[in-house]
Design a protein around this nucleic acid. Structure first.
Length: 477
RNA sequence: GGCGCCUUGGCCAAGUGGUAAGGCAGAGGUCUGCAAAAUCUCCAUCUCCGGUUCGAAUCCGGAAGGCGCCUCCA
């Protein structure tokens, strides 16, 4: 039984889809005023795994992820660079796609853009005015939060408390300081569209309500996003959607925790702003992905060098084991056999994922199985039959597919990781090969003192070597 | 000022009232020319103080520390 934590009820609930065997998911995508950063990556990986697990369970999924390609920040950035806002958003959308490809994220079924849904937005605003939830003033339209008596139900706040804590300047045309803009009258030179209230553009929250309802219906199963979106963005989305349709908007609200960098919040002012591109310079995409999954999606995660290196080591270990395993599995006559241990692993995997997508627990389960495999494979006595080895390969791939890891060819990915490590450490591979060659010569001459010297030199650079039946191998330790 | 979250061994991290998963690091063993890799063994009573309970890391109250949101933010 799958259980999902719902921000609305603040509890883990049994997942029951609105429509049998079907899950409709909307995840708030980027506001494309800048390049995607690693916080975006975390959110994308989290929702990606959630969607993958639904598919794994046999649900038909409809996954919608939007681009908000018009808002104040976009206009400001475009003005700073003196380019058209469309040029800016196009650029950042391309950058976003680059990272989703690198991180192996599934493509959503639908990717609507705000600027392509202006008429739906206007329609929704008209409904809100008609239903008495919104008012027009000076060419702009605002949502009146006082008129929506459930306002605050998602973020569990009281309106009066929020007003007391208001720190920003109250815009005079608003009836209530917490009222938010649905349609913004445009200033000269700004992007603008025609509307019943004059030229203007949509407010920041309305696009998600309009687009999610258009593609998923008035009520759908899951709406996801970062924690920070709970208020005001998602709170406002509920007010808009339910105000317009009169129906419940979303059944389960899912929010991922924040990512910190070396213990601090990531921000431009702290100078610790890391784009996905930056991160991919130093770490393999699958390492980044696996790192994101080693902590439960709702918990905060700290992006630190120590943590990343540990993850890198883990993946390296997994793929090395997989490589050894495949040697035996390839002798299989054909049919893979899942023995007790293999079945137990899959059970563990499902149980963990059923518990609010607890990928951190899956990580532990992976450890268990890899450790077990390393143990039994080395000995001829305990080594499972080739068919059983193939069975292990199968279950690892099966679980790995949901997390989006361990699908690649072991040898290839090991080489890729090594390349990144060499680059990161500024070491030439030719130097390593030279040292290994020299050591080999000394060893042939039984000059172990000299041979050890070669090894020590490599060790100083963080490189350890292993003598295997197939020759000497090296890796970063 | 308001609302919410977090605090588990040197570090990272699961823990859903029933007697602390896993990993890294560390110590010791096997293997090895020596190593490394792999593997085995060892290594915590859960920030503090009260309370509920036969029994609490898990529930309640309080304290301390950290964080987030309330303004754009995944």
């Amino acid at each position: 039984m799958l259980r999902v934590y719902n921000t609305l009820t603040e509890k883990k609930e049994e997942f029951v889809p609105l429509e049998k065997d079907k899950v409709k998911i909307y995840a708030c995508g980027m506001t494309v005023y800048d390049k995607p950063h690693i916080g975006h990556a975390r959110k994308e990986v989290a929702i990606d795994v959630i969607v993958r697990y639904f598919k794994y369970l046999g649900y038909e999924t409809v996954y919608v992820r939007n681009f908000t390609d018009i808002d104040d920040k976009i206009i400001d950035r475009a003005n700073e660079r003196d380019i058209d806002f469309r040029e800016l958003t196009h650029e950042n959308i391309e950058a976003f796609y680059k990272t989703t490809t690198a991180l192996g994220l599934m493509e959503p079924d639908i990717e609507p853009k705000a600027t392509e849904h202006i008429s739906e937005i206007i329609e929704m605003i008209e409904k809100l005015i008609k239903n008495g939830y919104a008012y027009e003033t000076g060419g702009s339209v605002y949502f009146s939060i006082k008129s929506f008596n459930q306002y605050g139900k998602l973020s569990h706040r009281k309106i009066d408390d929020m007003i007391a804590g208001t720190r920003f300047e109250v815009e005079t045309e608003k009836k209530n300081p917490l009222d938010f803009v649905l349609w913004k009258a445009s200033k000269p030179g700004e992007p603008q569209w025609e509307s019943p209230w004059g030229m203007g553009r949509p407010g920041w929250h309305i696009e998600c309500s309009a687009m999610s309802i258009k593609y998923l219906g008035d009520t759908f199963d899951i709406h996801a996003g970062g924690r920070d979106l709970i208020f005001p963005h998602h709170e406002n989305e509920i007010a808009q959607a339910e105000g317009a349709t009169g129906k419940p908007f979303v059944k389960y609200w899912v929010h991922n925790g924040f990512l910190t960098v070396e213990g601090e919040k990531m921000s431009k002012s702290l100078g610790n702003f890391i784009t996905v591109d930056d991160a991919l310079e130093d770490y393999h995409p699958e390492v980044l992905r696996y790192f994101m999954l080693s902590t439960h999606y709702r918990s905060p995660i700290d992006f630190s060098i120590v943590n990343l290196k540990e993850t890198e080591k883990k993946l390296y270990y997994f793929y090395t084991t997989l490589k050894n395993l495949s040697v035996f599995a390839s002798r299989s006559s054909g049919n893979a056999v899942r023995n007790e241990k293999a079945k137990a692993f899959i059970d563990e995997f499902r149980e963990a994922m059923d518990d609010d997508f607890n990928s951190a627990k899956v990580v532990a389960a992976f450890y268990g199985v890899f450790k077990y495999l390393n143990d039994i494979i080395v000995s001829k006595k305990t080594r499972p039959a080739p068919e059983e080895c193939a069975g292990f390969e199968e279950v690892i791939k099966e679980a790995g597919k949901v997390l989006g890891v361990l699908q690649r060819d072991s040898s290839e990915i090991i080489e890729e990781i090594k390349e990144i490590q060499l680059k990161r450490n500024g070491i030439e591979i030719s130097f390593i090969e030279e040292m290994i060659e020299k050591r080999k010569e000394y060893r042939m001459k039984k000059d172990f003192a000299k041979a050890d010297e070669m090894r020590d030199k490599l060790l100083e650079l963080g490189i350890s070597i292993q003598d295997t039946p197939d020759g000497t191998e090296w890796n970063f330790s």
